Structures are given as C-alpha cells and as structure tokens.
Simulated assay, not measured.
Amino acid sequence: MAILSNVSFPCSNISLKPSLSSSRHHCLIRCSLEGKEVVSPLVWSLGEEVSKRSLLALVSASLFFVDPALAFKGGGPYGQGVTRGQDLSGKDFSGQTLIRQDFKTSILRQANFKGAKLLGASFFDADLTGADLSETDLRGADFSLANVTKVNLTNANLEGATATGNTSFKGSNITGADFTDVPLRDDQREYLCKIADGVNATTGNATRDTLLCN
C-alpha cells in the first residue's frame, strides 16, 4: 500500500500523513513554479528514517533538474519572471524599478528602459543594440562584455558602473550621461570623448568631465 503526500514548495514545514504501513513509502511532491506544476516522486524504505529537513533538501535539489530556466530568476520588483538569457527585444521596461535585475546574456535590442531605476542591474554579455536607456539610474550596473552600440544614454547616470572587456558604446548617444568612476578601455574613452556633450540633469556633472577628457 502506497502512502501519498502532497507538499507545496517553497514551504517551511513538511508533514507526511501516513495511513497504512508498508515496506516502501512513496511521497508525491507537487510544486507550482512559474505557473507550471512540477511533480517529483520520492521513495524510501520503512527502515530508513527521513527527517523533514532532509526531505526539504531533496525537494529543492530535484527542482534543478526539472527545468534549467527556472534556476535563473529575474528577481526584483519586475517580478519572478525570468529575465536572464532571454530574448526581450522591444520590451517596454520604461519607468520601472528594476534594482539588481538580472539581464545577463539576454537580447534586449530596441528595449525601452527610459526613466527606469536599474541600480546594480546586470547586463553582462547582453545585447542592448538600439535600446533606450535615457534618463535611467544605472549606478553600479554591470555592462561587462555587453553590446551597447547605438543606445540612447541621454542623461543616464552610470556612476560606478562596470564596462570592461569588449563592451562597446559605438554609435550611442551619450549627451548628458554621467560616467563618473566607470572603468573604460582607452580606445572606448577616446571614442566617447569625441562625441561627449552636455550636463547630466540629475548630478549636474558635465559628460566630458566624468569621462576625464582632456
């Protein structure tokens, strides 16, 4: 006779409700993630003691083999929707609060982030070609290896952002952008100084000054 228990995940307490004893116990784990129901069976012998904590650990571990995409949460106020490694071309994120949002390796061509709060957001190896990042708060954002070509960075605040590796700002509009403490390759700094203009409306810093242009 099998014993079936339904367990919701995540949960802090797991209870098993045995009805009849048997030589084998079967526990059917049902979890709801990203709108999908995940069912995972666990089996153990009567002579084997399984603690609640051990069972929770087994459930957690099993979820990583259900759908790899579920391991990459977008997080932040945008919600639990996956934003990492996704094609989000043309999506409208304008005016949203997306602090520490994970956009690693995502395709964000022509995406609209105008006026969004993106403090600490990660755009590592993302494709932002043609995106609108005007008037955004990008302090501490990570643009390592990102394609930031033809992007509108008008009045964007990039203080302390990371832009190393092959990060390229070619063809971007940086009028009024604040690049204070942004580490740039010499060739990128030289290129940006040729087109730098304006003063950031929020910080009051001149773009050329923040780029340390001569």
Rank of each mutant, 00 (worst) to 15 (best):
R84F: 15
T154M: 02
L46R: 08
G79K: 06
F179V: 06
E49L: 11
V151N: 02
R30V: 15
K36W: 10
N112L: 13
E37Y: 14
I195D: 00
F64R: 09
A156G: 01
V148L: 12
T105G: 01
L211I: 12
L108R: 02
F143H: 00
D127L: 11
D209W: 08
P10Q: 00
V7A: 06
G85M: 07
N152A: 09
L119E: 07
I195T: 13
K17V: 14
S62H: 03
T129W: 04
R185I: 08
N157C: 07
A141R: 00
K17I: 14
I29E: 03
S62C: 02
T202W: 06
K194F: 12
G198A: 05
A201F: 15
K52P: 09
S45H: 10
K52F: 11
F124N: 03
F93L: 04
G35Q: 05
R24D: 03
S23V: 12
D87R: 07
A2R: 05
D178M: 05
S32Y: 13
G165Q: 09
T175D: 01
S168N: 11
D178G: 02
A71N: 04
P77T: 07
D92T: 08
S122A: 13
D87H: 11
F64N: 04
Q80L: 14
S134M: 07
D178T: 10
Q101M: 13
L108N: 00
R30M: 09
